[in-house]
Design a protein around this nucleic acid. Structure first.
Lengths: 129, 129
DNA sequence: ATAGGAGTTCCAGTGACTGGAAGGTCAATA
DNA sequence: TATTGACCTTCCAGTCACTGGAACTCCTAT
């Protein structure tokens, strides 16, 4: 498979796949003409990474998860630990965003949004305690 | 005020303040010894930016909001539009994170997390449709 | 005189791509 | 056979908003 095929099949953009090769995440073969030549296993790896990334795992997490996937002696506890840590970080991000959202939407509701200059949003930002 | 004072008062790290000067967000004066010399107005600007950043506004948003703040002819509708657009983006991020969280936490619950290698998390990531 | 805690500039790195330029390769068509 | 156009290659730069560190100067107190 050329990079275009594997990009389409895996949903990972060609440009991203080249980047993944750069950082050593995938190592496709090379054809005589210099084109990258992807085996089925490369495709599966990319699809795996694509799904992990879609769940928000970092590239380093992907490395870890791939290593665990290929490790016959892994313990599911190791995988679970990675996932749980990631979940914690997701929760953190969510609560930060929710608190921003609350503050901001309350300000937005207070703002008339008309032609006059008076604006509680700006007023709030300008408060120098 | 030197940079350290204004950093402490505004809560914006000195390093970040220098960066803000680089990109033209603040323009403190300079003392004879080359030190940055912050006026009260510089401090207030930095505090404004700090609060806007804490609400997740981008640097470009901060520029816009500062311009509006200093514009006597602004209409609150302009400010509200910026805030509402930002709010939309926050909502988008939240729902992305929530959907990740749901998928991931369901997988985590299915995973025994013991010494055995069988792991539904890895199994899910490895599915090649 | 010296020590330390400020401040200064400049360069490089972060994460995970993404865009674009300049060029080589391949398959199909005129 | 020439050419078009789609695909591939490498390399460099940019994104966003900082952050770390090195090498240096400056100020204040002892």
């Amino acid at each position: 498979m050329n990079i275009g095929d594997v990009a389409e099949r895996s949903g990972v953009p060609a440009k991203t796949i080249r980047y993944y090769e750069d950082i050593g995440l995938v190592t496709p073969l090379r054809a005589a003409n210099g084109y990258r030549s992807f085996r089925e296993i490369d495709f599966r790896k990319l699809a795996f990474i694509g799904r992990a990334r879609a769940l928000g795992f970092t590239i380093e997490d992907c490395r870890t998860l791939l290593a665990l996937y290929n490790d016959d002696n892994r313990e599911s506890a190791q995988v679970k630990a990675v996932a749980e840590e990631h979940l914690r970080q997701i929760d953190e991000k969510i609560s930060k965003l929710m608190s921003m959202k609350e503050t901001l939407s309350s300000l937005v509701h207070q703002c008339a949004g008309d032609h006059r200059p008076d604006c509680p949003i700006l007023a709030d930002l300008a408060v120098s305690d």
